[in-house]
């Protein structure tokens, strides 16, 4: 089983490197937000493999916290890009909720 865990972690690491390339190269901020959200999911995946490998539950709180933080961070960043990216002078337009 150690071989399976090692191969899985290697593939997840490769996926993380590909995602980092998109973070660096991404032409817009939204591309980087998407790529960073994918990176958070990949971190969740790697920690899950560690939970299975060690058969210990002390990383479960880390899993929940990172999932929550990733969601809140990406949603906030998308909102900020949306507000700042609107062209034109004057006060900012109201959001879609109003």
């Amino acid at each position: 089983m150690q071989v399976v865990y090692t191969i899985t972690l290697g593939m997840v690491t490769a996926a993380g490197l590909l995602t980092l390339v998109r973070v660096v190269r991404g032409p817009t901020e939204l591309d980087r937000v998407v790529a960073l959200d994918v990176l958070v999911v990949l971190i969740l995946t790697a920690v899950t493999v560690e939970v299975a490998r060690l058969d210990e539950g002390f990383n479960l709180a880390l899993l929940g916290s990172v999932a929550l933080l990733g969601f809140l961070g990406a949603a906030t960043a998308a909102r900020l890009v949306e507000l700042r990216g609107l062209p034109g002078p004057g006060p900012r337009r109201p959001g879609p909720d109003q």
Partner: peptide, 16 residues
């Protein structure tokens, strides 16, 4: 686990 890791790599590749 191997299938899930393959999906992760495919997702990152598509992102690229």
């Amino acid at each position: 686990m191997l299938g899930g890791a393959a999906f992760c790599v495919l997702g990152a590749w598509g992102l690229l």
